[in-house]
């Protein structure tokens, strides 16, 4: 019996066995898929913002930020039997949904999210195998625990697998 585990915005979860993870409608947010191919454990985080250190009062929401969410996801995967050295990553999202946003704090937030995720993965020595990031459309992300396949569905451009 395979279940689909939904990951909300600023949330994360893991799946084992035949299960599948999904996060709906990534816009400028980034979906981070981590996978231990030997232990067959998949993890998915849906982050909103690049960096927790620029803000005060975030201690209660580590899943919201790229830097802290990756650490938490790895920790939870390890508690469930994954090994840090086995982990591989695939990421998607970080779009710029609206073309002309003059507001500087919002400009390129998707791109900044992607950069922060890559930097976070590098710090944890997790190789990035595939990415589908940037551009200007929303993506729904499915991540399959038995195979480690990331499937992206977009409204305008159809579906892909990574």
């Amino acid at each position: 019996m395979n279940n689909t585990v939904t990951v909300g915005i600023a949330d994360l979860n893991i799946a084992k066995g035949e299960d599948c993870l999904v996060t709906y409608a990534l816009g400028s947010c980034v979906g981070i898929c981590l996978y231990d191919p030997i232990m067959r454990i998949a993890g998915l985080a849906h982050i909103m913002l690049p960096d927790s250190t620029q803000l005060v009062n975030v201690t209660n929401q580590p899943y919201k930020f790229a830097d802290t969410a990756i650490i938490e996801l790895v920790k939870i995967m390890q508690q469930n039997g994954a090994h840090a050295v086995n982990l591989k990553a695939k990421i998607a999202g970080g779009a710029q949904m609206f073309a002309a946003m003059s507001n500087s704090s919002l400009a390129n937030i998707g791109e900044r999210n992607v950069k922060a995720v890559k930097a976070g993965l590098m710090r944890m020595h997790i190789p990035l195998l595939a990415e589908d990031t940037g551009k200007n459309y929303g993506r729904t992300l499915y991540f399959d625990a038995p195979t480690g396949t990331m499937r992206i569905k977009s409204a305008a451009k159809g579906e892909w697998e990574f």
Binding site: Y24, G27, M48, M97, F98
Partner: peptide, 10 residues
């Protein structure tokens, strides 16, 4: 024009 969730992410 896109998925509601993606638009709301902004």
């Amino acid at each position: 024009i896109d998925m509601a969730g993606a638009i709301l992410s902004v």
